[in-house]
Design a protein around this nucleic acid. Structure first.
Lengths: 163, 163
DNA sequence: GTGCGGTAGTTGACGGTTCAACTATGCCTC
DNA sequence: GAGGCATAGTTGAACCGTCAACTACCGCAC
């Protein structure tokens, strides 16, 4: 394999930058819209995954994988949510190392309230500004990226390879 | 207008989550690949915009807008890069309030080195795993989102509206 | 030319995220 | 059943980003 650099061509460059920047704008917008209600997007995602899970409970690591965050981050976020009484930690019955995180009734009420605001925000900034076929294409492209990422053998971080 | 909630349907839900998660994975992957070389993605973006600018210099606020970051964040990031000698602050000639950020020769050398790693990373995780038409669709959808965002009259943050 | 509202950028404190080190448990092998 | 490696989760420090307050300057109005 040669070491020649395959730069992006002009179109690719344009699309890539559109992605990067829209991305930042979307994140900022969603976060801002949720901030009004006192949570960040990542807190909301955690709560939301819990609320859909069987028994409204999930293992910490399952949660981390679902929302694509580090275990450490999930620990900290869960701690914050626990302080609010929205979430409760219990030992996993089948694995002495494990912890099951459970949504409390207060937590459930909160997610349900937040979901209203959030879905409106997602529609306003993304879904409703795209033609259905465009949104579908977006979703499918991103799913493809995920699949490739999951299939990449080097995915869990090879420590570093500064060449 | 009714207050009825328009939830996402099953497909929309799937696409939206694919977006959110792929997004996190892409960010993490790009950041990790750059971290090997000692910079974060947002530092790289700043350097990269500077390197393409006329005279390799840009006003702070132009930079902030280009890379979709708060002015404050750009100040902090620039301060870090200045400590490394990659970037230099100079007063704007035409506006006593302004600051022009300039890439130093060391900074230029750094971006050029980083760009090699970065383009490979972008290709590996995104561009090359998509069919060209898919990548195009992704880019165009994101450009549409940006355009809508820019056109949204409430865009610069209405402080809050907790309903 | 004084006052005034708006823009450019910085600052420091706060809070969230990351990272590396650590504890504790599971599991496999001999 | 003891040793050893892997996994689950936590912890605290360092780092980065956000936010609100602040300085300084612009430009307009009168």
């Amino acid at each position: 394999m040669t070491d020649e650099v395959r730069w992006l061509d002009a179109d690719e460059q344009t699309w890539w930058r559109a992605y990067l920047r829209a991305n930042r704008e979307i994140d900022a917008a969603l976060d801002r819209d949720l901030a009004c209600h006192g949570v960040s997007l990542s807190e909301y995602e955690l709560l939301s995954m819990l609320s859909e899970a069987e028994g409204r409970r999930l293992r910490m690591s399952a949660l981390a994988e679902l929302i694509v965050q580090s275990r450490s981050r999930v620990t900290h976020t869960a701690a914050r949510l626990e302080r609010r009484g929205w979430v409760r930690r219990t030992p996993a019955p089948d694995d002495g190392r494990g912890v099951v995180l459970e949504l409390t009734p207060d937590g459930l009420a909160a997610v349900e309230r937040l979901a209203l605001a959030h879905v409106a925000s997602v529609r306003r900034h993304v879904v409703d500004v795209l033609a259905p076929s465009q949104f579908r294409a977006l979703g499918e492209a991103m799913a493809t990226v995920r699949a490739a990422y999951a299939a990449d053998p080097t995915t869990p971080p090879t420590p570093c390879d500064p060449r």
